[in-house]
């Protein structure tokens, strides 16, 4: 329950079918009002999730709503990222993460009594990306059934986890592990290839600055002491900066010397992507990811179920006798 508010009266809590309808309304009519409506949507979605919690309900409508809410958060993260409207990324991520945890619990419960949820793989994939360096998720995914493990989205997420792993990663409380790949070039190659679906790409945008930082860090260790500046195009290409300006911003933030000669990679003074004395860099938006929005609408993105199930199919496929 919300920290500030007391729990609602039973009569105020909306029944599951009403919650689904409310969310459907949001998807069909309100997403188009983004980015300005972000705060409102955040609040409405949180209240929907909370109503399920208050009545301790984890049936098909709860799955349906939490799944769509996750997708909406992923959409919002990209849309807000490219807009100039102020918003709290941390709050969006918090709700996203809570919804993913709720879904994981329900999926486990359903499996324990022999049922299945058709979209489970997609959301297990997002969970893998939510804590991309936490080995706990590698353990969990290996325990799930073959159909889930071999699902293309799950495989993609696992690839990203390996690619983003870095033995140089530096953050308080994080223990470095051996032989990590730090394949920054492959990371951007995949995102730019068009084969990673939009919502997953939006999630990965959250890691772009981090990956870029550790690329710079690693590169700086591999250059000769007296190495001259590097042609900016080399970095713009490999690290998929949208333009020179974006590279400029990045270098300014991390105190990397950028002159008419190029980028002096070795001038990077920091060990960690997290700077104590500054606000975090605004999360990056990739042009190639943004372009994916040209071919679809917000509501279509949210409604795209791999198996095109409607909610009545949910009821048939999953269980309800609890």
């Amino acid at each position: 329950p919300a920290a500030a508010a007391a729990p609602p009266l039973p009569s105020d809590v909306r029944p599951p079918h009403v919650l689904s309808q409310t969310l459907d309304y949001i998807v069909d009519n309100l997403l188009v009002t983004l980015p300005s409506s972000e705060g409102f949507l955040w609040d409405r979605m949180r209240s929907i999730r909370q109503d399920f919690t208050y009545q301790n309900y984890s049936g098909p409508e709860a799955v349906y709503c939490n799944e769509r809410i996750v997708r909406i958060h992923l959409l919002i993260i990209h849309v807000m990222g490219r807009s100039k409207v102020d918003f709290s990324l941390q709050q969006e991520l918090e709700q996203l993460h809570k919804a993913l945890i709720t879904l994981a619990e329900i999926y486990d419960e359903v499996r324990a009594i022999g049922g299945t949820c058709p979209n489970e793989a997609e959301f297990r994939a997002y969970a893998l990306l939510s804590k991309i360096r936490d080995p706990e998720y590698d353990k969990n995914i290996q325990e799930l059934p073959q159909e889930i493990f071999q699902n293309e989205l799950v495989q993609m997420a696992i690839c990203f986890r390996r690619i983003v792993s870095s033995s140089n990663f530096n953050e308080r409380g994080y223990i470095k592990t051996e032989n990590c790949l730090n394949f920054y070039k492959r990371f951007f190659q995949l995102l730019g290839s068009g084969t990673v679906p939009f919502l997953m790409s939006s999630f990965m945008e959250l890691y772009v600055n981090e990956v870029r930082f550790y690329a710079f860090k690693a590169l700086s260790h591999s250059l000769n002491k007296r190495h001259k500046a590097i042609n900016p195009d080399h970095l713009i290409d490999d690290l998929l900066f949208n333009d020179y300006k974006e590279l400029e911003n990045f270098c300014e933030y991390y105190s990397i010397t950028l002159t008419s000669d190029g980028v002096d990679v070795k001038s990077l003074p920091y060990q960690s992507h997290k700077l104590a004395e500054r606000q975090p860099l605004k999360h990056a938006i990739l042009k190639c990811v943004d372009k994916m929005l040209d071919h679809t609408s917000y509501s279509a993105l949210i409604k795209a179920d791999p198996e095109n199930t409607t909610i009545s199919n949910h009821i048939a496929i999953t269980h309800t006798d609890k």
Binding site: E152, Q155, C159, T195, V196
Partner: peptide, 11 residues
């Protein structure tokens, strides 16, 4: 470019 863990990481 079908992505799976055995073929998508190395180039």
């Amino acid at each position: 470019e079908k992505i799976d863990i055995h073929t998508a990481i190395h180039r």
